[in-house]
Simulated assay, not measured.
Amino acid sequence: MSEHVIKPGWFTINVFNRAVAWLTRRGLSVWGSRVLAVRGRKSGEWRRTPVNLLVVNGERYLVAPRGHVQWTHNMRAAGGGRLLLGKRVEEFSATEVADDAKPEVLRAYLKRWKAEVGVFFGGVGAGSTDEELRAIAHKHPVFRITELRPVS
């Protein structure tokens, strides 16, 4: 059964995402922004998308606010990828976080980026209970990432 994915609006696609990606490609992180590169599960070609890198208790995470999208499917298949910030390229492995373990990460993500992504969380926010966060956890893949090595 596939979930309905909320598409970002025109401003987000054509202005905000492009501006953040442009800055990130030049080495300027905007609120933890990176460009995620992950191999396509069918083509094997590198696919890129802007993401927000979140750090919680010293662990690093990628959260999919828009749900089960292409990069999350590719990440599951590849088991990792690359994070790019300007010319810095970091290879990493990724482990998907179980739904029951997501509330703390989702809460931290929403606390930091709710203004940007809150619409995708159906009214659940940083102040929501663990139960409310668990109820939506299945809609938002979360990956814990571990650096393998800097590539450049």
Rank of each mutant, 00 (worst) to 15 (best):
M1F: 09
M1I: 07
H4M: 10
H4Y: 10
V5D: 01
K7S: 10
W10D: 02
F11C: 01
T12P: 00
N14R: 10
V15F: 15
V15K: 00
N17P: 05
N17R: 13
R18Y: 12
A19S: 13
A19E: 06
V20P: 02
V20H: 07
A21E: 15
A21L: 13
W22L: 14
T24G: 09
G27W: 13
L28Q: 11
L28R: 13
L28N: 11
S29R: 15
W31G: 03
G32Y: 14
G32D: 03
S33M: 10
V35W: 11
V38W: 04
V38I: 06
V38Q: 05
R39F: 10
R39S: 09
R41L: 00
K42I: 07
S43Y: 08
S43L: 08
E45D: 15
W46Q: 03
R47F: 15
R47Y: 14
R47D: 00
R47G: 07
R48I: 07
T49Y: 10
V51Y: 04
L54D: 04
L54G: 05
V55H: 14
V55Q: 15
V56H: 11
V56A: 08
G58R: 12
E59T: 12
E59C: 14
R60Q: 14
Y61N: 01
V63T: 06
V63I: 07
A64C: 09
P65I: 00
R66F: 07
G67P: 02
W71D: 00
N74C: 02
N74K: 01
M75C: 06
R76W: 06
R76Q: 10
R76S: 01
R76H: 04
G79E: 04
G81F: 09
R82T: 13
R82D: 00
R82M: 11
R82F: 12
L83E: 01
L84R: 12
L84N: 04
L85N: 08
G86L: 02
E90W: 11
E90A: 13
F92S: 08
S93H: 11
A94W: 04
E96S: 04
V97I: 11
V97A: 04
A98V: 10
D99S: 05
D100V: 11
K102N: 02
P103V: 07
E104H: 11
L106Q: 03
L106V: 06
A108C: 10
Y109P: 09
L110S: 02
K111V: 14
R112M: 14
W113D: 02
K114P: 09
K114L: 08
V119D: 08
F120H: 11
F121A: 02
F121V: 09
G122L: 13
G122N: 15
G122I: 07
G123R: 08
V124Q: 03
S128F: 13
T129Y: 07
T129D: 12
D130R: 00
D130P: 10
D130W: 03
E131L: 00
E131I: 02
E131V: 01
L133E: 01
R134K: 14
H138I: 03
K139P: 03
H140F: 03
H140R: 05
H140P: 03
V142F: 02
F143K: 01
F143L: 00
L148H: 05
R149A: 12
P150F: 13
V151D: 00
S152Y: 11
S152C: 09
S152K: 13
